Simulated assay, not measured.
Amino acid sequence: MKLANVSLSQQVSALALDRGLVLVVATLISIGLIMVASSSLDFAAAQYGDAWFFVKKQLTFLCIGIAAGIIVAAIPMTIWQRYSGILLLMAIFFLVVVLLPGVGKVVNGSRRWLSIGPVSMQASELSKFCLIVYFASYLARKNHEIRYEWAGFFKMIGIIGFVVFLLLLEPDFGSSVVICLTLGAMMFVAGVPLLRFGLLALTGVVFLASMARLSPYRWERLITFMDPWERQFDSGYQLVQSLIAFGRGEWLGTGLGNSMQKLFFLPEAHTDFIFSIYSEEFGLIGALVLIGLFSYFVWKMLCLSRVAFYRQKLFGCYLVFGIAVMVAVQAFINMGVASGLLPTKGLTLPFVSYGGSSLLVTCTLVALVFRVAWEERFGAE
C-alpha cells in the first residue's frame, strides 16, 4: 500500500508510529532540557551574564533538529539508499574541510568545528549520520560480496581506516571509537564471517591501544583513570569531582537544582559530565531510571530492526541497528566516564547533554528510525 493512499485517520495514527518509541524519545529530550537548565544556570550567569544562555541555545537546536527530522522522515528509504554514495562523499568532505586552517574552528586544542552560517557544527557528528546511512546501504546492496568475498570486506575497512585517520588529525579519539564500534557491529550483523570480523576487531583494538600509548595526554588519562585520587588536584580533578557528585546523590539524590558540584567544582557539568549532576540530584534510583530509558530506547530500535530483517528490508534493518548501536555505545561511554568505569573521554549523552551538533544529528537519526517504522506499517511509496 502506498503512503499516498493512506487515509487521514491512518496518517494521524502513523504519527504515533510506535507509541513506546515516541514516548521514550520525548522523555529523554525533556530530561535533557531540565538537566541542561539545572546544571548550567549558575555557570551561564557568571560566564555570559544570562542564566538561561545554554537553555536558549539548546532549545534553538532542538527546534532545528525537529524541523530537520521532519524533512528527513519525509524522504522515502529508497531515496536514502540510492544517494548514499553522496553522503559518504559529504562525510569525507566535512572531515577534510574542518582540518583546513581558517575554516575549522579550534576549541580546547582540537579542530573539530565548522561554522555553518550563524551556528557551529562538529564535523564528526555530521559524518556519523552520513556513514551510518552509507554503510547500511552498502551492506544491503553488497550483502553477498561482504559475506563471501574479501574484496567487499577490504573496501569497508579502507573507508573506516580513512575516516578514523581524518578524525585523529583533529584529534577526536572518542568519535573514532564510536564510529569504529558502530560500523563494526553493522558489519557483524550483516554476516561478515567471524574470522574476518575477529581480524577487524583485533586490528582495531591494537590500533586504538597504540594511539593511546603513543599520545602523552591520552596515556595520562589512562593512568589517572586507574587511580584518580592520586592526582585529584591535577589530571584527576574532573573525575574526582564527578565521583563526589555520585557520592552526594546517595539513593534518592539531593533534589532537582540542589547539586553542589555544578557550582564551579565540576568542569563541563552541562556537557560531558551531565550524568554526574543528574545522579547527584536524583540519586542511584534516578540513575537507574535513566539507564532503563536508554535501554528501552535501544531495545525498541533493535525490535524494529529485527522486523525489517524478517521482511527482507535489509537497508532499513542495518540502518536502525546501526543507530541503536551508536546510541548505546555513546550512552555507555558517557555514563562510564562519568562514573569512573572508563577513562575520561569527551562524548555527549544523547538527547541529555548540552550540545547542538549532537542533538541535531541524534534528532535526524531518530527521524530515520521513525521513517523505517512508518514504511513497515504502511509500506513504501
Rank of each mutant, 00 (worst) to 15 (best):
A212R: 08
F273E: 08
F61R: 06
A37N: 02
I34V: 11
F54W: 14
D234K: 13
G322F: 06
A245I: 06
V107K: 14
F309Y: 13
L314R: 09
R196C: 01
T182D: 03
Q330D: 04
L100S: 02
L341N: 10
S295H: 07
A212T: 10
L252A: 09
G102P: 05
T364I: 11
A338G: 07
G322D: 03
L33Q: 08
Q232T: 00
I146A: 08
V36K: 02
I29C: 01
F154G: 05
C130M: 06
C180P: 02
Q312L: 11
S40A: 14
A4K: 15
R111A: 10
W251F: 06
A190V: 05
S215L: 07
W251A: 08
Q241G: 05
S279H: 09
I333S: 00
V206Y: 11
G292L: 09
R311N: 12
S295A: 15
V329S: 02
L293F: 15
C303G: 02
V206Q: 03
A328N: 08
P101H: 08
H270I: 01
V320N: 09
W229K: 01
I285E: 00
S38L: 07
F154Q: 01
S242F: 11
Q58F: 07
A16T: 12
I132F: 01
L202T: 14
P267G: 03
L266C: 12
I160L: 13
V119D: 01
S339M: 15
A380P: 04
G174N: 12
W374N: 11
I132N: 08
P216F: 08
I92N: 02
K105Y: 13
T364G: 01
G20E: 12
D234M: 02
P101G: 04
L252C: 07
L304T: 14
A51V: 04
L304H: 04
S357C: 14
F153A: 08
W80P: 04
G191P: 09
F93M: 14
L41W: 14
A74Y: 08
V327H: 11
V307C: 04
F207S: 07
V178L: 06
I34G: 09
G255Y: 06
V240M: 02
L252E: 02
L266N: 10
F378W: 05
P228A: 10
R248N: 15
F378A: 03
I34P: 07
L222V: 09
V119K: 05
W52M: 14
S84L: 09
K142T: 02
G322M: 07
F265W: 14
S84W: 04
T203S: 07
A269E: 07
P101C: 11
V206L: 15
A190M: 03
V164Q: 05
A73V: 01
G49A: 09
L95S: 08
